[in-house]
Design a protein around this nucleic acid. Structure first.
Lengths: 151, 151
DNA sequence: TCGCACGTTCAGTATTGACTAAACGTTCTT
DNA sequence: AAGAACGTTTAGTCAATACTGAACGTGCGA
C-alpha cells in the first residue's frame, strides 16, 4: 500500500503529464515507477493505481517505447517488471526539443508561403524562424552540457 | 481566399498545436494570424477557417488571454480585429518553462515522500530534481539572452 | 426609437479517445 | 497433456470536450 505522500506524488504527476498532452494514467504510472524502490509487475501497478491490467499493459508499453521505462526480468519469475531507465528525464526533454525544431520547420514553410515581398507576416515568420533556430540549438547544447556533467 | 501553401501552413500549425496539448482549431487560428498581413476580424477568420463565429470568438479570446494575440481597432470600424503580438513565441516558450519548474517541485515533493533512506527511488528523484533545476535555470537564461539580442 | 451589426454565451451535439472486460495466444508447470 | 499464469488484443462503453446554432445583450447609426 502507498502512504499518503507517495499517493499524492503519483496523483500530481498524473496531472502534470496531462498538462503536457499525455494521459493522466500514463503520468500516474510514470510517477509510481519513479517512487518505487524496485521494478513492478503489471498486476502490482494495476492494483496500486486501481486500473485494469489492460490499461497498464498498453500504458507501460508506450512508456517503454518512448524510452522512459524498460522491462527487466527477475530470476525465478516469468512476469515482466518495469522500471524507469536512467536518464529518462533527458529523454523526455529531447522529445520536447523535437517540437522546437518542428516549429522552425513550420516557420520556414510559412516564409515560402508568404513570398518575398516585405510584409508584417514576413517579419513575424522571420522572427519565429530565428527564435526557434536559436532555441533548438541552445537547448541541445544544454543537454550536451548536462550529459557531460552527469551522464 | 488562401493559396494552397498558406492553407497547408495553417493546417500544419493546427496539427503541431494539437501535439502540444492545445486544440487544432486554436492552432489554425494562430497560424492564420501569423501569415495574415493585416489584423483579421472574427467573421473573416470564421470564413477562412470554415468554423462558426462562436468557436472563433472563444478561441481568439483564449489566444488573447494567453498573450499570443491582441485586439486592435481600425478607424471607422467597430469590429474587433486580432493580430499576433510581437514576441508571441517567447511567451509561448515561457509557458512551457513553467512545466520544468513544476517538475522540479514534484521531484522535491517526491524526495520527501520516499524519506531519507538510500534507495533507487531516492537516487532517481535526486537526478530528477538536479536535472530540472539545471534546465529551468538555463532555459531562463537563454530567454534572457534572446531578449537582449532581439527584444 | 427602431433596426442593424457585432461579440458573447448557452444548451445541445458529435467526436474523440482512454479505459474495461473478456477472449485469445503463449509459455511454463505438474 | 492438461491446466495455470501472463501479457496482449479487441470490441464496447463511457466521459470529456470542442464545435454549432440560436438566443441574448450592447451600442452604433439612420
Amino acid at each position: 500500500m502507498l502512504n499518503p505522500d507517495t499517493l499524492q506524488f503519483v496523483e500530481r504527476m498524473g496531472l502534470a503529464m496531462e498538462r503536457l498532452g499525455l494521459t493522466r494514467t500514463f503520468g500516474r504510472l510514470f510517477g509510481l515507477l519513479l517512487i518505487a524502490d524496485r521494478p513492478l509487475s503489471l498486476d502490482e501497478i494495476a492494483e496500486q493505481l486501481h486500473v485494469s491490467k489492460a490499461s497498464v499493459s498498453t500504458n507501460a508499453r508506450s512508456c517503454e517505447q518512448i524510452g522512459l521505462a524498460r522491462r527487466v526480468g527477475l530470476r525465478g519469475d516469468r512476469r515482466d517488471f518495469y522500471e524507469i531507465v536512467p536518464g529518462a528525464f533527458e529523454r523526455m526533454t529531447r522529445r520536447r526539443v523535437q517540437s522546437i525544431h518542428e516549429m522552425a520547420g513550420l516557420a520556414a514553410e510559412g516564409l515560402v508561403a508568404v513570398g518575398d515581398d516585405e510584409s508584417p507576416a514576413r517579419d513575424r515568420l522571420t522572427e519565429m524562424l530565428d527564435f526557434y533556430l536559436f532555441m533548438g540549438e541552445q537547448v541541445e547544447e544544454l543537454l550536451e552540457r548536462w550529459r557531460e556533467v552527469k551522464g
